[in-house]
């Protein structure tokens, strides 16, 4: 058995979501754009900032908005000595629960301060506004301690009111970073395909051969170990002609994506077909891999550029997925 490389690669899972805000969140964000902060009165009379859409105790819908102050006091806090890349500040800062003047329920935001020694529960802070508020929670860039240097300009209030459309939609970028590890069985497969060899795994119980292998026989629920080298000839089990582009994929439509079963394998995988008229592709058709040049091989099924039809008789439907390694003639 070939000792596999451990395959780990960073990847980003990211999308900029378009969120409709609804009237309550929208009211708050519209206020931010005017450098004003609104809360909402809960069923028990307490003022919640930012405004909650629904009362946590009674579940009632809330809409009794109250403007609150731009200053408040720290209820609790923590000091982030080493900010994370996603954090809104990249120098040491504090997160805090801040009860604004006129509010009863503290909100969570960040505080810019030189050191944790400046901070204390009960200390007074005030909002620092972004230069160009746009109706997003980061319009409050941060809070700062009242009486500290670097005072921000006095907040403008309400000047733009009425001139701008209310905020009802926001763009929220959420980009997360991961390290993806291929798994032991896939890593063995990918290590071999980098050498131009297709390797499946045979189930010790049902003897079916899986490629690409995932380390288990899904039917029997047992680990698979035995490796089987397979040829690069396959049969079309089924296919589709795709007329729309695949996200993050340069292939131009229309293109054929086929479910292919390699000779000697008992499971299909999907891959591209080319060097053929799309209209001629059919179930049972014989195909063979067209590989990229060997110096471009990497840990990827993409080492096979596509499969192309070959001049062999069609495989009867009841034999698809059951051919020996030697193919139909064998």
């Amino acid at each position: 058995m070939v000792q596999p490389d451990v395959l780990s690669q960073p990847f980003e899972l990211g999308f900029t979501y378009t969120r409709s805000t609804g009237p309550v969140v929208g009211r708050f964000l519209t206020g931010l754009r005017q450098r004003r902060i609104f809360g909402v009165r809960a069923s028990d009379g307490r003022v919640i900032v930012p405004p909650a859409e629904y009362d946590p105790h009674t579940a009632a819908a809330l809409d009794d908005f109250v403007e609150v102050g731009q200053e408040g006091e720290i209820v609790s806090w923590c000091w982030v000595a080493q900010p994370r890349a996603a954090h809104p500040m990249q120098r040491p800062f504090a997160w805090a629960m801040i009860r604004l003047d006129g509010a009863d329920i503290p909100m969570i935001h960040c505080i810019a301060a030189a050191s944790p020694d400046e901070l204390a529960t009960g200390a007074r802070v005030r909002a620092v506004w972004a230069d160009e508020p746009r109706g997003f929670i980061t319009d409050i860039r941060c809070f700062e301690l009242v009486g500290k240097a670097g005072a921000s300009p006095a907040p403008a209030t309400g000047e733009d009111a009425g001139e701008l459309e209310p905020v009802d939609r926001i763009e929220t970028p959420i980009y997360l970073h991961y390290h993806f590890t291929a798994g032991s069985a896939p890593a063995r497969f990918l290590t071999r395909i980098k050498q131009g060899v297709l390797t499946g795994q045979r189930c010790p119980r049902c003897a079916n051969v899986y490629i690409p292998p995932r380390g288990s026989c899904p039917a029997c629920g047992v680990p698979t170990q035995e490796e089987v080298v397979l040829p690069d000839k396959a049969t079309v089990q089924s296919f589709t002609v795709v007329a729309i582009p695949i996200p993050n994929n340069p292939i131009k439509p229309p293109f054929v994506v086929a479910n292919l079963v390699l000779d000697g394998a008992n499971i299909s995988f999907i891959h591209l077909m080319s060097e053929c008229e799309n209209a001629d592709v059919h179930i049972g058709q014989r195909v063979q891999a067209v590989w990229k040049p060997a110096d471009e091989w990497t840990y990827a099924m993409d080492n096979i550029r596509y499969f192309k039809p070959i001049d062999e008789p069609d495989v009867p439907v009841d034999k698809i997925g059951k051919l020996p390694i030697t193919g139909l003639e064998g």
């Binding site: 896939p186 089924s238 296919f239 589709t240 795709v242 695949i246 994506v257 891959h271 990827a300």
Partner: peptide, 26 residues
Amino acid sequence: ALSTPQPFSAHLNAGAGGYFAPIIRE
């Protein structure tokens, strides 16, 4: 969201339609 590309895997998943079309053909 259904086709988030991950390293080491084929990126031919053309959404749910791409998956079910060959089954319908069969």
